[in-house]
Design a binder for these strands. Structure first.
Length: 331
DNA sequence: TAGGCCATCTGGTCCT
DNA sequence: AGGACCAGATGGCCTA
């Protein structure tokens, strides 16, 4: 699917005429109102201006010198240079270059964000984490790993999951919680899920789930391979920690200054690992609006919404090479 | 239809 | 002067 912005960019790169242009683009006095009203359209100028009407523009530029503004005060600042055709062309070329740079910069930023997504404990291509959720989860992940490193927290404990989910939206919390359902539940006994789909034993302890009949795994995958280095360092000792031993406010834990968003009641949103819920909230697209609107509701929930549709029943082997995280602890 | 997310354009500011 | 960075504005897409 070709996005409109791509076409727009291509057009601009090809040298299409300027679509919108205020008449004071080279204003040296930096009037903030110019920017804020640029596209909204003031009573004076509601029409987009195309480049090419330079003559009229130059006239305006000339008249503006020494003119009084709406408040009757003289304009300050350096005298404006006349916007000649050559200057306009230079400006336009500069603007096009700047736009291209800005696009490139933002693409680089997005690439970096995508890299960050790819090493998140929950990586789903279908339920893609939004930018803000990616950053929040990354922050939580670092906190959780730090706490695990400091010895008080099992990477498979509920506390780890709670730290991971702090401040996340409900859909993201569900995603994380779903991904963190490691290993077959005691009730199942066999490495099979409730729908009979074979779940091979995972030597790495990493199990991901997905729902049947859906185009793709709704909850992504949890790669406990991320945590292998931790186990190696810890010798797996902390795996026996109970969730109650985990205290975010405890000594030696990194300070956590609270979720950046209205807090969710994580403890009420997450299913204890000891008793994995057979069902999670049905997979749905990330919709912060519904989350925000229903946050109070969610907070009063006890346990997961026992929605019948949305069980995990397929296995995806851990796909994430432990390179990134491992490298952090290499030295 | 409202709201969230996103890409893009743009002008301002700071720095080299 | 030019590039990087930033924030505001805008419009498109998508979902509830």
């Amino acid at each position: 699917m070709i996005k409109p912005y791509m076409r727009r960019g291509e057009e601009e790169e090809a040298g299409s005429p300027l679509q919108w242009m205020d008449g004071d683009m080279s204003s040296p006095d930096g009037d903030a109102s110019i920017s804020s009203n640029r596209y909204r359209g003031s009573a004076v100028n509601q029409q987009p201006r195309e480049i090419g009407s330079e003559d009229a523009e130059e006239d305006e530029e000339d008249e503006e010198e020494g003119q009084e503004d709406e408040n009757g005060s003289k304009r300050r600042g350096p005298k404006k240079k006349r916007m000649t055709k050559a200057r306009q062309e230079r400006f336009r070329a500069r603007r096009v270059k700047a736009n291209a740079r800005e696009r490139s910069r933002m693409h680089g930023l997005n690439d970096a964000l995508e890299n960050l997504r790819s090493i998140m404990p929950c990586h789903s291509k279908t339920q893609k984490l939004s930018k803000i959720e990616t950053l929040r989860l990354a922050r939580n992940y670092i906190c959780a790993l730090s706490e695990a490193l400091e010895g008080g927290l099992s990477t498979e404990s509920r506390g780890f999951m709670e730290t991971l989910c702090k401040g996340l939206s409900q859909p993201t919390t569900n995603l994380v919680a779903g991904c963190l359902q490691l290993g077959p539940s005691p009730a199942q006994g066999k490495p099979e899920d409730r729908h009979g789909v074979h779940v091979p034993p995972t030597p790495l302890g990493g199990v991901s789930y997905s729902s049947p009949g859906l185009p793709s795994p709704p909850y992504g995958t949890f790669d406990s391979a991320h945590l292998l280095h931790l186990r190696a360092m810890k010798g797996g000792l902390y795996d026996n920690h109970s969730p109650s031993e985990y205290n975010t406010g405890g000594v030696g834990t990194p300070p956590y200054d609270g979720p950046p968003t209205p807090p969710l009641s994580i403890s009420s949103n997450l299913v204890p690992k000891q008793e994995p819920s057979p069902h999670y909230l049905p997979p749905h697209h990330y919709s912060p609006s519904s989350v925000d609107q229903n946050q109070g509701l969610y907070q009063t929930h006890s346990g997961y919404d026992p929605h019948p549709e949305g069980p995990y029943n397929s296995y995806h082997p851990p796909h994430m090479p432990p390179r990134q995280i491992t490298s952090i602890y290499r030295d």
